[in-house]
């Protein structure tokens, strides 16, 4: 059995004849999946569309990522649950969920389980979700405004990112999360880069904005690029992806560190 929410991925598969499921269940009108709860902790129902995330995401980086996706029509249809279900390394919300250290909530007749995002994806379009499980929500702790999402692409809309980078600095919890998209089989967390950034904030003070030095920003970019495992494909080369990640890492740090 296949579930259909926004259909922005599934319908492509059907139209190209790559999949011919026996049964399809549309879940786009299941109200329980479409809610967003916020009380310091965010629970975003799997049926929340990208358009809704623009206005009410519980994460600035997630709103920025949602804005990069497709066109207004696609944003009106596509959902966060769909992005998680497809589990493509190019899914634009996924680097943000990684950086937020979000939890994926899965439910089946056997009950509910909560999977940290870091354990959720296992490969390109592969996840630990079992066939009998429905993605019901993603959850994370609100991390404050110091966060951003950046991407490079051959055009500004209706494109699959060549490389994407999310950075979240949770000043209250003294935590830095970085997620890299389209540059490996899964979303990558560059541990060295995160550690280096934590050191910078330790030095500058977590509670107030600062302007990182050019050399610090560059070093962070270098560490980000070093963690990536990109490939050459029709959209871009591995070398270009690595270079773009380094620039985006540096720019993301400069931007985010200056946000209170």
């Amino acid at each position: 059995m296949t579930v259909l929410a926004g259909g922005t991925d599934l319908m492509v598969e059907l139209n190209f004849g790559r999949r011919r499921p026996e049964h399809i269940v549309a879940i786009d009108r299941v109200g329980e999946l479409a809610g967003i709860e916020r009380n310091g902790h965010v629970r975003m129902g799997a049926g929340v569309t990208y358009t809704r995330m623009l206005a009410d995401a519980g994460s600035q980086a997630l709103a920025e990522a949602a804005r990069t996706i497709g066109s207004p029509q696609i944003r009106n249809a596509g959902t966060i649950g769909g992005n998680l279900g497809t589990a493509s390394p190019a899914g634009d919300t996924l680097p943000v969920l990684a950086a937020l250290e979000a939890t994926v909530v899965l439910r089946s007749k056997a009950g509910e389980r909560r999977v940290p995002f870091a354990d959720y994806m296992t490969g390109p379009k592969k996840s630990v979700r079992r066939a009998d499980e429905l993605i019901v929500a993603a959850e994370w702790d609100e991390a404050g405004p110091a966060q951003t999402y950046m991407f490079v692409s051959t055009r500004n809309a209706m494109a699959i990112s060549i490389a994407g980078l999310a950075m979240v600095v949770d000043r209250a919890r003294k935590r830095v999360g970085i997620g890299l998209g389209s540059c490996g089989p899964t979303i990558i967390r560059p541990a060295d880069a995160e550690g280096f950034a934590r050191g910078l904030f330790d030095e500058a003070g977590w509670e107030r904005p600062h302007r990182p030095s050019e050399s610090a920003a560059k070093e962070l970019g270098r560490l980000v690029a070093a963690a990536a495992r990109p490939i050459d494909d029709v959209r871009g080369t591995a070398a270009y992806r690595r270079h773009a990640l380094a620039v985006m890492g540096a720019r993301a740090l400069s931007r985010v560190a200056q946000i209170a």
Partner: peptide
Amino acid sequence: HKKPSLLDYKLPTSLD
């Protein structure tokens, strides 16, 4: 043809 679709054969959008 490696890009026989309007997703992969890039044409500028109104945003570009």
